[in-house]
Design a binder for these strands. Sequence first.
DNA 1: CTGTTAGCGCATTCAG
DNA 2: CTGAATGCGCTAACAG
Lengths: 334, 334
Amino acid sequence: MKSTSTTMKEMAKQLGVSVSTVSRALQNHPRIGSRTRERVHALAESLHYFVNNRAINFKNKRSYNIGIVLPYLTEQFFSLALSGIEESVSAKGYRVLVMQSKDDYQRESDAITSLMKHGVDGILVSMASETYNKKHFHHANFPIPLVFFDRVIKHTPYSIVYANMKDAAFQVMEYVILKGYKKIALLNGPNSLQATEDRLKGYLEALDQYQLPTNLEYITNINLTKEDTRLKVQYLLELPSPPEVILTFHDYIALDAMQVCKEKGLKINQDIFFASFSNLSFCDYLDTPPIVTVEQFPFRMGQQAASILLNAIESPDTYQPQEIVIPCKLITRG
Amino acid sequence: MKSTSTTMKEMAKQLGVSVSTVSRALQNHPRIGSRTRERVHALAESLHYFVNNRAINFKNKRSYNIGIVLPYLTEQFFSLALSGIEESVSAKGYRVLVMQSKDDYQRESDAITSLMKHGVDGILVSMASETYNKKHFHHANFPIPLVFFDRVIKHTPYSIVYANMKDAAFQVMEYVILKGYKKIALLNGPNSLQATEDRLKGYLEALDQYQLPTNLEYITNINLTKEDTRLKVQYLLELPSPPEVILTFHDYIALDAMQVCKEKGLKINQDIFFASFSNLSFCDYLDTPPIVTVEQFPFRMGQQAASILLNAIESPDTYQPQEIVIPCKLITRG
DNA sequence: CTGTTAGCGCATTCAG
DNA sequence: CTGAATGCGCTAACAG
């Protein structure tokens, strides 16, 4: 008894009128007899009729669905961004289709294809860290608009929204250097990410500007897994001259790195210090948080990206891909 | 130049064949000339043709979209559950449409309506705390299957998946009582939630079983906002005989409650203790975490709920609403 | 092996 | 004021 939903057709039949009459009655079209309108409405009510928006959208080649592809829903940064996106688009009558790439190229590519075939009106992407090949985006842009946020590709025909991480990295370093530390390691992300490059640039620029030596042993990359973090922190701690401060890719990494240090008997914010990015809310509850971090405003970033995408969807003729750089805010603790 | 995507119709015209031939060629139908098939595939390739799945789904009255309505994407519990849902359904070719109710009745009701009209294949809901009226769910069940998770309504025709919070509350209390504490307050959630009632039952049962007096002053409800938490914690601390332990609705609340205590000069896990629910990952990084909490397995809960829903969608004839109670696991610290 | 027809649910011409 | 016809993109039953 797969009770299928009521259609206009059935109602038309029951009332002995045409489908177009039912359609007009339902949308309170001016040129409809009030008598007929009443009858249609009454029947619709009793049959619990509700429109099949998919039919309408299908006809209009619109879905009012926005696709989102991001690495992990469980990372606070992304769930905040998603929340901003959802808030923005739902206010304009759109819905959000989320897919996780889990930092995997194939999953990301499949997700994009799936969204395209399904006919979303636009796509928002924060790239997987393992995405070196960017082909899967290129066939996606037409005819569906695509906007990158946070993990973006620069110099492409797409709009991008991201935080100025080079500047942020510089500021963080500046803060640490002015605190008097000289041996500062960088636990950076994977090289496939623009954000990794930007952090490195800011890091190097700060060392340069404050005339500190660049020690290549202090610069290391991780693939964002816990295991790799552990490995690289151990490596740093076992250097002949271990760092005083570790600048980590973001707060999650800092937390795991801290664990490793604690296991080695080091006291955080005493024997070793951390600087970081992201300003995740739970750091406020820590007794030994990173001494400095960066607020990247993921919620706002999501809203911005969504707003650009909606604009691209609703005014395709005047739309020009744009690049929005969100300034970061330094958060210092002691 | 709103470049609309290529259709089979166009390709058929270009090749001088019928649309059905193109359709068959594309899906490698057995009864098609290999010559024709090649030509069609070649053209499809060069035109970057991809199927419009919406047309197919529309025809088949399926969307392969699952709607999710939950309070907040930013709460770790829900993002974990969503992650489990996304993982389960995407493995079976479904996509996930998320909407946040923000614990608001109207938003929740609108979300459900929007999803229904849009024609999702099924809906997963974790109820808004302000949802007292349950009407909006009832018209939703036909013809779309609906499954509640975590914040469920018992005794309804819907499937429900939830953690056994009464049992969990009892176990937490038992642990606290056996530690020797007698003055235990309950900072419970809003009464609209089943989980609130369950926690209260477990709390009372434990007091009863261990023959401790029930002090009504120790039992208080909050609406899950930071402000209300602050208010109620202050109330508890100002009682003539303040509690030694506060059992909070979940870890987020515990964190905020701890802040209030710290501001009053109390030392956590010394002057006052906390017990809680949820076992959020960041608590592992705290120096003074709740002494006991409950792992509710939100990821698995999401998976379970998704699997029941998919089953309801794919085998509607044999589907029977079911009630899955996920056992919790006590996490003790110190 | 291939073309013709019908239809999914609806809005929208165009005719009365 | 209302009905008939058309089409959105595609598949499938029915004919050849």
